[in-house]
Design a protein around this nucleic acid. Sequence first.
RNA 1: UCCUCGGUAGCUCAAUUGGCAGAGCGCUCGGCUGUUAACCGAAUGGUUGGAGGUUCGAGUCCUCCCCGAGGAGCCA
Length: 431
Amino acid sequence: MPIVTVDAASRHLGESVTLQGWLYNRRSSGKILFLQVRDGTGVIQAVLSESDDADLFAMASELPRETSLRVRGTLREDARAPIGCELQLEGLEIVHRPTKDFPIELKEQTPAYLMDHRHLWIRTGRQIPLLRIRDTVFRAFRAFFHERGFVATEAPILTGTSVEGTTTLFELDYFGDRAYLGQSGQLYLEATAMALGKVYWLGPAFRAEKSKTRNHVTEFWIAEAEMAFVEHDENLKIQEDLVRYLVEATIAERSAELALLERDTELLKTQVAEPFPRIDYAEVIEWLRSEGHEIEFGSDLGAPHEEALSVRFGVPVFVERFPKTIKPFYMKRHPDNDGFVLGADLIGPEGYGELIGGSQREDDLDALVAHMEEAGLPTEPYQWYLDLRRYGSVPHSGFGMGLARVLRWICGVPHIREVIPFARQINRLYP
RNA sequence: UCCUCGGUAGCUCAAUUGGCAGAGCGCUCGGCUGUUAACCGAAUGGUUGGAGGUUCGAGUCCUCCCCGAGGAGCCA
């Protein structure tokens, strides 16, 4: 008897099949029983009346939730079934019967309790569609760059120096020396881009910042690209194409999951339909002040300011021409005004915050050294990086995108922890 | 690190002015032949985060500590 998955069930109507999975929930009404069986691809209902098979009915009637099992029967269409078809139960094999009550209930529970049981929480409700969409977005990210001739590469996780001096790093002992968990692969990708042309990577990044918000975790997968002979405008264009690609790929491949999440896909489509607006930092400050925000020129944009921008535009928006004082040393200065940088942040719609940070990189050795001195950074540990400007330096640009933040926006979920299998937060290292 | 709110049954939450510790859900038992987090009935379930204090009496008021949630800052 063929084994089918729930997502393929509707293509096997009228056939005798076996499904294998877990008992998600059980409902009954006297002499008729409904087993909700999930298998990772979806949840299907198996139906049995007592008059069909009294022994099977008695056995199936008292199975606890999350019993792992194989169910055998005939698939048939039925408008009363949650997914439009159901299994007429004819046989059932218990693979494992739970020894305790399953801790996750099918109702509202508090975040702390759910996160304490994250290893079991991921079996329930919207967690499954969220993780399947995560798979799609990760795959689409790689497909986008592969299609454009980029080379996939890696940056080291263990590093001896920080990329940006300000950020707090996780420190560890490295055979008696000090080492840090990488907070970004960028500087290494710049080196790789000088070898391979256009490169990207998708890998873990670590930030020991004591942030406690819906948009922060201490460990996250960063999506970075670095491109030789690409300048600022083209950099933004690629970022825009990428974001649109990710959204469209998700809608095309995961419309069922987005529907389960009650995400408005028409809204998503309109958010990426037009070229993303670009606005200068100075203009943002002026506008924010006219709206009553207390912010001075020279301050970085905070969450309330990004929120205001996302409300104003309703679509992803690039903020350009930041003052050099609030941006890292590696950014190239603006040709019109040395006080500004050739970089941009992409602010997501609906208050989802900064999705991408990118810039053209400083390719002139003397200028770069000067920037580092301005920032108070020692040049000694960065000699390898400065070598990139000593041997065939070229104009180049790149960016970093927090894929979980993009996922949060695409899925429309309130907290970033839900789009990460096992989120690491300031007070969360278990499970 | 700072600000705000919170911690009561396995889970989600009530408890009036300081006056007997409550409900829903889950589990268990019973009922129900199309359930949709099913429904109906019964039973079960308590060191009120910890320590100290005020009081005839503290879940409630005071002090300190611990933990959680959201936000700020910083960032992707």
